[in-house]
Amino acid sequence: MATNPLDRRYALLGAVLIAPTILIFSAVIIYPLVSAIYLSLFTIFTPTLRGQWVGLGNYAELMASNEFWRSLANTFIWTVFTLTLQIVLGIAVALMLHQNMVFRSLARSLILFPYFVSTVVAVLVWRWLFNDLYGILNYLALISGLLQRPLDWLGSMPNAMISIVLVGAWKYFPFVVIAVLARLQSIPDQLYEAAKMDGAGPIARFFDVTLPQLKEVLVVVILLRAIWDFKEFDLIYLLTGGGPVISTQTLPLMVYKEAFGLNDMGRASAIAVSMMLVMLVFMVLYLRSAGRSEREGAR
């Protein structure tokens, strides 16, 4: 322990310096978290925030609710497909941008564009592109003969799910590009040259040199993007609103609907808490992988 008076004063200074962060963290993270768990034990009428204690009743209802399971399934479908596309597209584009090509720096900045555009703006543009009467997608498909009749991109299944998955991939793949490109630039050229001498062709070089070197960054990117995609709200809400009916309704949309559409804050909180439990799994995986790479870095 700090027995020296100077040590004690340093310790005190440390506590004082860290206090504002702790306070803000408590106000914006701990308080809402605890209060969500607390609210989930009541039936609460949103406008008045008053209601009755029901214990685990909300959770029991959720377990018996088809809509909850359907939304959970939708969340997984959306996350898995859009994330897979983001990763594949992200790696492919990063590999492309890593090559020596004309306008490389221009291309590198342009590729980040979808990530920087506000979701509302991006979704509005996509809704026009997808529009079944005036949309350019249908127009092009019709004149090129790909389609005989206009397609309802957002109003029918499975089109609506495919559409949000595609827009999600388009919007978020630049994140993967940035992370992968940064890693690609740090892979030593001599490894590729050694592989060439060893008789490895371009495909073998990708799988034996590039991919193993990308593994660490990909683990982090996949976990982070999985967490972010899992809780994605605005993109889906603005694009389909969860429809048709609840075909593209993910858990965050269901939370919103319960809380502000059906005015049942208690049920909404119960869904949010269940969602958090699922994401906790990702978080634990993320922390473990971060911890592991730190230990390896220290070695």
Binding site: P188, Q190, L191, E193, A194, A195, M197, D208, V209, P212, Q213
Partner: peptide
Amino acid sequence: MVFQSYALYP
């Protein structure tokens, strides 16, 4: 070839 940095596959 033996490279200056050895270029072993890590």
